[in-house]
């Protein structure tokens, strides 16, 4: 595990291949929940938590169940089940332990199961940190770190977008472009400006 490798993962996950603006994962939630900052922030923190945890869990599932028993073709099914079960579990725990926390971001949890960002990062981790079904050195840490960075990238895009869209409420936007179309155009411009980071060398 080297610092340089971690930095590369950070820059590419947050800026160059931003989960929303470049990989288009979690786009549905991004467009639907970014109208105001508060719910956007709650959603982002929920997503970040789930991505990090599921990166860790799916790594264990793949490394110690699927690879030894030669079941790697069950990757998609097993991952989505594990993620769904985990999210369900978290939701139940939060509801019991902290009703306040549940009200703040619990309502977003069921949505996260079908958020492509979560499954996407899990699959991506396997693609990047397993070579021919053998884990590369420190691949567990890389996976979790990449999960964290993708979560950060999601939060960044979400915050920028919600701020902009809140301001647009006051603007005299042409009727045909209200809401969805304009949100996509803004995302396109943000994506263009993030291209400034492309070709980064560390």
């Amino acid at each position: 595990m080297s610092l340089q490798e971690l930095l590369t993962i950070f820059i590419s996950a947050v800026f160059i291949y931003n989960v929303i603006l470049s990989r288009f994962l979690g786009l549905c939630s991004f467009i639907a929940i970014s109208k105001e900052t508060k719910p956007a922030l709650a959603m982002s923190s929920a997503v970040m938590f789930v991505i990090v945890m599921s990166s860790a869990i799916t790594w264990f599932v793949y490394r110690f169940l699927l690879v030894p028993f030669n079941l790697t073709y069950l990757r998609t099914i097993s991952f989505i089940l594990v993620i769904a079960a985990f999210v369900q579990l978290v939701e139940m725990i939060i509801r019991k332990v902290s009703p306040y926390l549940y009200r703040a971001f619990g309502i977003y949890l069921p949505l996260i199961t079908v958020n492509c960002a979560v499954l996407g990062v899990a699959v991506l981790n396997i693609d990047m940190f397993f070579l021919k079904n053998k884990a590369v050195a420190a691949s567990f840490y890389y996976s979790v770190f990449q999960g964290l960075c993708v979560g950060l990238g999601y939060t960044l895009a979400m915050l920028l977008m919600s701020g902009i869209r809140e301001r647009l409420e006051l603007c005299n936007v042409p009727k045909a472009f209200k809401d969805f179309p304009l949100a996509f155009v803004i995302a396109a411009i943000l994506s263009l400006s993030f291209m400034g980071f492309s070709g980064f060398k560390s």
Partner: peptide, 12 residues
Amino acid sequence: PSGALLVIGLLL
């Protein structure tokens, strides 16, 4: 990627 977002925004 930005072109994709632009196309879908303009089409919508």
